[in-house]
Computed example of a mutant assay.
Amino acid sequence: MARLNAANNAGSKLSASITASDTTLTVEDASSFPAVPFLATLADDEIVKVTAVNGNTFTVERAQEGTTAKDWDAGVSVANRLTAGMYNALVSDEEFTTHKADDTLIKHKAKQIGLEDTSNLFTATELEGAMGELFTNVSNGKSLVGGAITDVDPNVVIPTDPAFQQLADGIGQISTGKKWASGVATSVGGKVKVTGLNFKPSSVTARWENAQASEQGHFSYYMEDQGVSTPISVMIWNPNQGIQPANATMYNDGFEISVGSPTSLDYYWIAFE
């Protein structure tokens, strides 16, 4: 039902008589009346609903709110007044509070809320449908970003339905070139072992020296990736013993090499992917 309009002190008089069956009436001056639709009371008796105005002529629905259509002479009053029907249509504060508390989950569902989309961003015309479209677009966008990451670096693992943080982490894991690392490792039992790298090394160089720097040595080796972590023979050198064979093992995250001397020494190493 369309909302009925009203205006203060809106009134005039019939400029011509009407019969009980007429659906139009003419007033002397229609300028004070509100925009349609509105109610008008004739001679403090019959209530009519005005649905259209053309100049001073009203198109009306007769006998509203239980009143009776009658013949009316020119000069009777025509006034826009508050009627019982208009008053009863008003919602009290108590009724409005009850409506909010009782009907929120029923009357105010997202699918029942219209969407004003002046930019034509959505196909849906209600909120629930628009939210579904937005979710789908975001999900598709994350899939495209995840696919782009793995296209650049297939070693980066992206979940099927990644969160934004997982996408950010994946971008940070993209390899942009050969990785390398360096550090200090103490030999134990004639071996130097380093693990915890984020790559599989193929080339390692290291040097050692005693506390007085009176003795020092180094080793370098390069190993092709054999796919398994098995020891292979390499050559190492130190100034006292010269070039000697040794065993080295390449792990997915580090390396281990036999250095011969059981003495614990610090080895300054650098490894390349």
Score class of each variant (00 low, 15 high):
residue 1 M to V: 08
residue 2 A to M: 02
residue 2 A to H: 04
residue 5 N to F: 02
residue 6 A to H: 15
residue 9 N to H: 12
residue 9 N to R: 14
residue 12 S to N: 08
residue 13 K to L: 12
residue 14 L to R: 04
residue 14 L to H: 03
residue 16 A to E: 00
residue 18 I to N: 09
residue 19 T to M: 09
residue 22 D to P: 01
residue 23 T to M: 10
residue 27 V to R: 09
residue 28 E to H: 00
residue 30 A to R: 03
residue 31 S to W: 07
residue 32 S to P: 09
residue 33 F to V: 01
residue 34 P to V: 07
residue 35 A to E: 10
residue 35 A to L: 07
residue 38 F to T: 01
residue 39 L to K: 05
residue 39 L to Q: 09
residue 43 A to T: 09
residue 45 D to E: 12
residue 45 D to R: 13
residue 46 E to K: 10
residue 46 E to W: 11
residue 47 I to G: 14
residue 50 V to I: 04
residue 51 T to Y: 06
residue 53 V to L: 10
residue 54 N to G: 05
residue 55 G to F: 00
residue 56 N to P: 03
residue 58 F to Q: 10
residue 60 V to C: 04
residue 68 T to E: 11
residue 69 A to V: 00
residue 74 A to C: 05
residue 75 G to T: 01
residue 79 A to V: 12
residue 80 N to T: 02
residue 82 L to M: 08
residue 83 T to L: 07
residue 85 G to P: 00
residue 87 Y to E: 07
residue 88 N to Q: 12
residue 89 A to Y: 11
residue 91 V to Y: 10
residue 92 S to R: 02
residue 92 S to C: 00
residue 93 D to Q: 04
residue 95 E to F: 10
residue 97 T to F: 08
residue 98 T to Y: 01
residue 99 H to A: 12
residue 99 H to W: 10
residue 99 H to C: 05
residue 100 K to G: 00
residue 100 K to S: 02
residue 100 K to N: 03
residue 103 D to E: 14
residue 104 T to D: 14
residue 105 L to C: 03
residue 105 L to I: 08
residue 108 H to I: 09
residue 109 K to C: 08
residue 110 A to S: 12
residue 118 T to S: 13
residue 124 A to S: 00
residue 125 T to W: 00
residue 126 E to W: 13
residue 127 L to K: 11
residue 129 G to N: 01
residue 129 G to C: 01
residue 130 A to W: 12
residue 130 A to S: 15
residue 132 G to A: 10
residue 134 L to E: 07
residue 135 F to D: 13
residue 139 S to T: 11
residue 139 S to G: 08
residue 140 N to Y: 09
residue 141 G to K: 04
residue 148 A to R: 15
residue 149 I to P: 15
residue 150 T to C: 04
residue 152 V to H: 14
residue 153 D to F: 04
residue 154 P to A: 01
residue 155 N to D: 13
residue 155 N to K: 14
residue 156 V to Q: 04
residue 157 V to W: 03
residue 157 V to Y: 03
residue 161 D to H: 06
residue 161 D to W: 04
residue 163 A to T: 14
residue 163 A to D: 08
residue 164 F to N: 12
residue 164 F to C: 04
residue 164 F to P: 02
residue 165 Q to Y: 06
residue 167 L to T: 11
residue 168 A to L: 15
residue 169 D to Y: 09
residue 170 G to D: 03
residue 170 G to T: 03
residue 172 G to E: 01
residue 173 Q to Y: 09
residue 176 T to H: 11
residue 179 K to T: 12
residue 186 T to N: 13
residue 187 S to D: 07
residue 187 S to W: 08
residue 188 V to F: 05
residue 188 V to I: 13
residue 190 G to V: 13
residue 190 G to H: 09
residue 191 K to V: 00
residue 193 K to S: 14
residue 193 K to Y: 02
residue 195 T to V: 05
residue 198 N to S: 13
residue 200 K to I: 01
residue 205 T to P: 03
residue 205 T to I: 15
residue 205 T to R: 13
residue 205 T to Q: 11
residue 218 H to V: 07
residue 222 Y to C: 05
residue 226 Q to Y: 09
residue 228 V to W: 08
residue 228 V to Y: 11
residue 232 I to F: 00
residue 247 N to A: 06
residue 247 N to M: 06
residue 248 A to V: 05
residue 249 T to P: 12
residue 249 T to E: 04
residue 249 T to W: 07
residue 250 M to C: 09
residue 250 M to A: 06
residue 250 M to I: 14
residue 252 N to M: 06
residue 254 G to L: 04
residue 257 I to M: 02
residue 257 I to V: 15
residue 258 S to C: 07
residue 262 P to W: 13
residue 264 S to N: 15
residue 266 D to E: 12
residue 266 D to L: 13
